[in-house]
Amino acid sequence: MNYLLHLLILLDVYIVVAMSLNVIVGYVGLLTLAHAAYFAIGGYSYALVTLLLGWSFVPAVIAAVLVGVAFSFALSLASWRLKGDFFVLFSLAVQIAIYTVLWNWRKSGVEPGTWENLTNGIDGLNAIAKPLLFGHQFVGLGEIAILFTVIMALVGVISWTMLNSPWGRLLKAVRDDELAARSLGKDVRLIKMQAIGIAAALAGFAGALFASYMAFINPMSFDLNQSIVLLSMIIVGGVGNAFIGPFFGALLLLAIPEALRFVDLPIMVAGEVRLMVYGLLLVVLMRWRPQGIAGSYRME
């Protein structure tokens, strides 16, 4: 039971990340490999302000969101000029730069979280504050699961509402034909900035949730592979659809490794088998359902 609650909590977090990534991939039409980095930015921001400044849950989550937005300018400024493969490469650079900083901003013998040892590298940050709302500290798995599921549903409703508003309509138009949108007098730079900013905010938010639940983070949870898994989630689930695609994508890609646990594979090959199953899933999908399970937009 505890194990299932743990999975449910992770699922909630990943659905939020997948929804945020879906905004960039499915609605701005840009493939990014930097999403794990934005997830990390949220997690580390939350951890640092709670650990160092002693902020409580709500302000710390807000801080994580704002830091995410601040970093979003890296991607949105690039999106003004770069398209296709060039944007992908740029996002790869962002991912690697942030990951490298997380990995290397450390000095042994110095207290973690100080200027000299900000991230504590591979050893990560410990004892991060658990969620706290209305004076209630969420510690048990059950209550965290309920809290996160409610939050996930709320985020789903909010992002669905935004993406189905006239703003979402405009966003899709910009994705489909930027020049035509500009020629109708639309400010495409502004709208890309808004969309990527919102996506980064959501990723930061999910990162904060993740850190608050795990109480421990290190860079391993946010590497390039993680970015690729996140992308796989929304490609499998289907992009350009506010909620259902990310939901099924996250569900499937979380469920597979867990299901494999019950197959008694030797430790050495388990990881490889998981990757093979992901690969197979993508190939099968490309062949029979290129738009993903619930997608409404097909990437070229």
Binding site: I158, T161, M162, S165, P166, W167, L170, K186, I191, Q194, A195, I198
Partner: peptide
């Protein structure tokens, strides 16, 4: 009016 992301709220 609806072309701003948060206006719907």
């Amino acid at each position: 009016t609806g072309e701003s992301p948060f206006a719907v709220f």
